[in-house]
Design a protein around this nucleic acid. Structure first.
Lengths: 325, 325
DNA sequence: CTGTTAGCGCCTTCAG
DNA sequence: CTGAAGGCGCTAACAG
């Protein structure tokens, strides 16, 4: 039924070791016999069993990817980046969603360990001590992707979140805004969002108004933002995601305040949404694809014990100016 | 370093066979010794090696998921559905993107086979004979997800695409439209889209105008649709995706034709985009999450040789009426 | 350059 | 109810 390396060996009249060698290029094999082996492989339609291989070599060439939720545009884009580079280096990814539940996240690290993944790429809103402990227990190379690690004890790739918040504020002020608000998740939910808030705060001339949207969804944000517009004199909005940015735009419009004339709105991310709505949204663009791609690339280096000059990579963010400001 | 089943056996003073039994519940074990084993497991922090397990049992509890591109909203949602049900049944998923390239897709089936996945969930725009051949060669249970299989030789879950196209047309006509156009990919690119077009055509009173957008992207669609608006008297648009639907709305608006007053627009999918834009879009909602969830559920049945009453599941689509019509 | 021989960690008969 | 023994398919020394 299943053709094994033995079958190939027999067919090619060599030992299985030789077959293994041509398969892995792990040693020099005479051209002639190599050809015989390759012919046998083709003839029998042999495909090496990755599981057996994994058991014997203790390397599975698969990496675990733990994200809050693939169905979020931002995350999906990151995953795409991861997967592209993974295939490039001949790795596969096991994808799991944690919904940001720390218990499940820690559990998943254990599961990944059972699966013998060679490495893990990890995205979460809030890194806890439990996480760190789980990583250390699992003894698997981990790369933190787009998540804040205050201690910087774990390899990571991120942008300078605080700076990006600061830049957003500066930009809006330079565009003539005088009273800023930050539409985001409640404090403590997302460390990334909080860090940006800090930067924003630093740039704002006046105390920053925080507009907190528990589930960070468009529809729940709409009424909440409207209320703020009605009770304050906010003329500049920074939103923690494109979705929230759009809610802000619509909230303003609903109150007869044209964007950008009366109030300017910009958001974080630069998902496709930002360029498909009207007015098109000015954003602090995040290198979503690159978050994934660079994380995976960094992980391959870790796995090969290649020299790494920087264990905590900071990617660049940039402002894409469009019509909402 | 790594603690194995032997270590647990020694610690519990039983044989490894017994440990295996309590681990898998594969036979009755005396309460007393079972407890000893469990204590030993806890004490040593033992976690079974899934790879070794996979080699010995020939079951890896991982399934391969092949999709065109996770970063597409529709796909990401499906993948989420797959993953949720997979975890529920204690499976993991290996995710790969094919970009719809048939060569790569066939190649991936082979790779999945090497990885010894227990099953495959497959999404593609166009099922070819090569695919079928590859499936049969791999001898792995496959479930086609949201892709048209004219022959119905492979288990699948889908909606009635032709009917959904027909429904869209009927709906628009009932809303007073008299000249319809279908914004979609070029003929032959996506069998699903083509099938819907057939249904639409059947419902339309007049020959249907096809507006083909090679890459199906918002920005490329915009000018093309405008041109059609200018050269024809179209007053009803059905778009093959929410993104294209939005392009149609904006194209109309740009030409001073209000939506829905002057032209009505509806699209397929019902991704979040549809409910976040203005006017909110009427859609033929597809059960994206369920495509994934049901596919995975079906696959678990196939893997357990459970009786399946329907190998080709048809999920229901429905019209969600919003402001664009 | 090539063959032989041990395992990798676990499941699974087969005895007892 | 439990133990012993033989693989699963492949890699990796170690010889030759």
């Amino acid at each position: 039924m299943t053709v094994t390396i033995y079958d190939v060996a027999r067919e090619a009249k060599v030992s299985m070791a030789t077959v293994s060698r041509v398969l892995n290029g792990t040693a020099v094999v005479k051209e002639d016999t190599k050809k015989r082996v390759q012919d046998a492989i083709a003839k029998l339609g042999y495909r090496p069993n990755a599981v057996a291989r994994g058991l014997a070599s203790k390397k599975t060439r698969t990496i675990g990817v733990i994200v809050p939720d693939v169905s979020a545009a931002f995350v999906a884009e990151v995953v795409r980046g991861i997967e592209d580079i993974a295939t490039m280096y001949e790795y596969h990814i096991i994808l799991t969603n944690s919904d940001g539940e720390i218990e499940r996240e820690v559990d998943l690290i254990g599961t990944m360990w059972e699966k013998q993944v060679d490495g893990i790429i990890y995205m979460t809103n809030k890194l806890s001590q439990e996480h760190i402990a789980a990583f250390e227990a699992a003894q698997i190379p981990v790369v933190l992707c787009a998540t804040e690690d205050p201690e910087r004890r774990i390899p990571s790739v991120n942008i300078d979140n605080r700076q990006s918040g600061y830049d957003a504020g500066e930009y809006l002020l330079s565009r003539g805004c005088s009273s800023l608000a930050y539409v985001t998740t409640p404090l403590g939910v997302s460390v990334v969002a909080d860090r940006r808030g800090e930067g924003l705060e630093r740039s704002a001339k006046q105390p920053l108004i925080r507009i907190e949207i528990p589930d960070a969804h468009y529809h729940s944000a709409l009424p909440i933002i409207k209320e703020i517009f009605e009770s304050t004199k906010v003329d500049g909005i920074v939103a923690a995601s494109d979705e929230l940015g759009l809610a802000a735009i619509h909230a303003a419009q609903d109150l007869g305040r044209p964007v950008p004339a009366s109030v300017k709105v910009m958001s974080f991310d630069n998902t496709r949404l930002a360029e498909m709505v009207r007015p098109e949204m000015t954003v602090i663009a995040q290198p979503m694809y690159d978050f994934g791609a660079v994380s995976m690339r960094l992980l391959t280096k870790l796995l090969k014990d290649e020299p790494v000059d920087n264990y905590s990579v900071t990617l660049l963010h940039n402002i894409v100016e469009r019509q909402s400001t």
